[in-house]
Nucleic acid binder design. Sequence first.
RNA 1: GCGCAGGUGGCGGAGCGGUCAAUCGCAUGUGACUGUAAAUCACACGCCCUAGUGGCUACGGGGGUUCGAAUCCCUCCCUGCGCACCA
Length: 410
Amino acid sequence: MIKNSYDILKERGFVNQSTDEAGIKQLLSKQKVNFYIGFDPTASSLHVGSLVGLMAAAHLQNQGHKPIILVGGGTGLVGDPSGKDKARPIMNRQEINKNALALKKQISKIINFKDNRAVLANNADWLTKLNYIEFLRDFGTHFSVNRLLNSESVKIRLEKGLSFLEFNYQLLQAYDFWHLFKTKNCVLQLGGSDQWGNIVAGVELVRRLEEKEAYGITIPLITTSDGKKMGKTEKGAVWLDAKLTSPYEYYQFWINTDDADTIKFLLLFTFLPVEEIEKLKKLKGSEIKKAKEILAFEATKILHGEKEAKKAADASAALFGNENKKAGSVPTIAINKNEFRQGIPASKLFVLAGLAKSSGEAQRLIKQGGGYLNEKRLDNSNLLITESDFENGEIMLRAGKKKYQKITLR
RNA sequence: GCGCAGGUGGCGGAGCGGUCAAUCGCAUGUGACUGUAAAUCACACGCCCUAGUGGCUACGGGGGUUCGAAUCCCUCCCUGCGCACCA
């Protein structure tokens, strides 16, 4: 029996709520569906938080449906108040366009844009052309302020203050859905659970204007088992851009998954068949590490390719296993030879390597016993590091238990 | 526009003339314990250095009072609440 696309999503944990479960199931089983999911171009890279939506979209694409990836170039100019207790900084056009371009590159690692199997859209293309009066007359009439006031996202902000600008966000997103429905025959929207209100607004707008049914599915906000938002690491957010988070760091992020989250993440962030993941469930105690290795490898493979994933896995095994600490793809920086002529104080070197934000922090680190040079614990943050400390042209720095940085000479 | 209440470190939130780089909680980091997990315990947590009863910058911005200001005064900006205005 062929599984229904919706059931696939549901069984892997991608579904938080949906507007009409039976309707969606029927829709997805009888035809190839165009659906959309939006991303905010407020940063130049997506992070693992956005990955859930992309994975959901990828699963649907694998089932033959067609994703429309919407970059919120227009809505980004407004700022979504959902789930925020503060107004977002308003961004200018250029920045947003630059970000949108960068995002596409990352998204195309997961979604296949070849042969028109997926399309990228930017709502700036239509939102910026809207005429205020026309918009109010044609669409404003379909929105009830009473309802908006009752929505959770607005309620929260009412206590702290909400500008009219942000208040309008929902109308714009609803308009997006309608626009895509009209022009691209898009009948389904995916979004984070904080988008529920916005998605429903779109569904209703389509119903009112077109007297046709559109659907929405929200994806749960992925939290770690202790209730925190996922996606943070020692160095901050985990980005999808390899320049910001190297494949090795990305791999490490997944390896460091909490035991309790391992299975959940395998389902969400890998394409492994559910049956296979079920088997991993049986692992107990320190064996869970094996499941995490699979998770880390698969997740890294999806984003950075098999070769990089292997390299990261090897590096990880070398550094944390008992073999000698030689590693291939540990983040490496090259420092000019001349710098070492007089020697660089250990604390400075940690800052240069990006393992500490300030030399005060580095000094603290070393004082507390968390600074290592070539696997030897440093006891003096003023120790001058010179060329003679290099072994085979490199130095391995370590901060704490898990953060490594290799230094080479230039 | 008028009145009221506020604006303090990543966040929450004390302090209300000296002993404040600022109590406390959360978050974070390091160490111990472990399985590169969780929990727990300990320590740290503005920046700089020649590392000291050292220097510098910081309690929305600017100015002032004072030997001395996060703390008092003036002014500007911002936020919330109430009133007014408009619809």
